[in-house]
Nucleic acid binder design. Structure first.
Lengths: 252, 252
DNA sequence: CGCATTATTGATTGATTTCAAAGAGTGTGG
DNA sequence: CCACACTCTTTGAAATCAATCAATAATGCG
């Protein structure tokens, strides 16, 4: 099971990822020493209930993380993007199945080794904690979405979140990549595939988004999208001085 | 801001709580040195967005933790019971409002002090991690509930969870205390108060539960309740007599 | 005891699901 | 290069579950 020795190590590759992190020892720097493994789209990294032997960092690609309910429904609890950690449950069994949506590259540590590293580094610990807290915050937002939002609000929220996630990477692009299928979206948003499809169509008809291939859309009216997503949108003036950035990302 | 000096310390009080914890230094032992504060039912401990200055441990009582959506809906993301921690977000702002459901007793640390203690203790750290992971697991279960379960499944799941939670405290009691109101339940389960009420009535008519005052019910058919909750329970014997009730509630 | 709050019950509406079918995109092999 | 099979997506019509609207009942508090 120790597949991390399969590929050659690429120490010089670190800087491209770790540039933005101030401390000498970051989680990303830690993982950067590990070998990169590749998973084809659709393949599972681990299964719910598996003995939790490894912790992963996503280098490239997108994964879905899900549970199967008693009556066979799939509930996707999150999507994992490059830079995110995967499998950081302190339980000894994975809480969910992780599956590659697209072709994915990962680095892994054994849980034991990872815990040692974390324990020995006062620098790493707060970073890991921060990750867990981000995950918790995301989970809570998702609970709000599932508990009270309409189909239109759910889909809009989803598009908005992935649009913003991308914006930090590839700035000034109104094109939002949607690597996952409609079924993935449905199982993430607590809707059926038909409702997702209908809602997308509705957003397109309303001119909020425009189709741009099957796995991407162009956000045409980001302010309206935010309003539909049910954000506290009294006004969107005072947020940042970098309103110019927002305009650059989403030119109206 | 060091409000923990307000009340007198009660070192002798520890044992009653800390008896069950093996290690010399447990989270509960840590908190046990702090003064106890009381919050009346309905009063807020902190608000979403407040500067996150303290971490709390619940000594007694139940709290609700919630967010308010853009359109004014309240979404309760969890209930906090004695022994649980509150406010362990590593963010510098609280992610949610915490409000006492019943009269509640808490102990608190400043965040700074708490982090120091955690950082200096290799014994405490895994305990805190385990708590966070339990919280995460609960959040995921809640996402599953909200994403795919019917009203009946939601209410049944809720009753089952609090029944099991109580069982560790006050054993061998099929009487489940429900300290929260129907509105609390509704806002937690992503339903309306009417639907919760109707579903409870339905469960009563079906003989699954029996009313026992407004804030408690008797679980008469725990196996059926588990089935209605959508748990993967392939086998289920009929369970009318008291002995099998207890077995079914607490199988382990 | 009366009033405010909380809970139940009933009737109706409506959003989303379900069922059904057709259309679009992708890859394969002849 | 095209036909075929497959999957994924869109669209339509009907059914359903929970929300909403409305009224009554129970509880608890001063």
């Amino acid at each position: 099971m120790f597949t991390e020795t399969i590929m050659s190590q690429r120490p010089g590759f670190v800087s491209a990822i770790a540039d933005t992190t101030p401390p000498a020892l970051s989680l990303q720097a830690l993982f950067s020493k590990q070998a990169v493994e590749t998973f084809e789209g659709g393949s599972a990294v681990f299964w719910e209930g598996d003995s939790a032997r490894h912790v992963f960092e996503v280098v490239e690609g997108v994964l879905r993380v899900f549970k199967i309910t008693g009556d066979g429904h799939r509930v996707i609890t999150g999507f994992i993007y490059p830079g995110d950690l995967l499998g950081v449950s302190l339980k000894d069994r994975y809480l969910y199945t992780a599956e590659a949506v697209t072709k994915t590259k990962l680095r892994r540590f054994t849980r034991r080794r990872f815990q040692e590293e974390i324990n020995q580094s006062p620098e790493l610990r707060p970073q890991l904690f921060a990750r867990l807290c981000d995950e918790m915050a995301a989970a809570q937002d998702q609970m709000v979405l599932l508990a009270r939002k309409s189909a239109e609000e759910r889909v809009s929220s989803f598009l908005l979140v992935i649009a913003r996630r991308l914006s930090s990477d590839q700035l000034a692009q109104p094109i939002v990549e949607i690597p996952m299928t409609r079924l993935d979206m449905a199982d993430y948003l607590g809707l059926t595939i038909e409702t997702v499809s209908r809602t997308m169509t509705k957003l397109i008809s309303a001119g909020v988004i425009a189709p741009s291939g099957r796995h991407s859309v162009i956000v045409r009216k980001p302010a309206k999208l935010a309003r539909l997503a049910g954000e506290g949108d009294d006004d969107d003036k005072q947020t940042w001085d970098q309103a110019s950035i927002q305009q650059a990302i989403w030119p109206q």
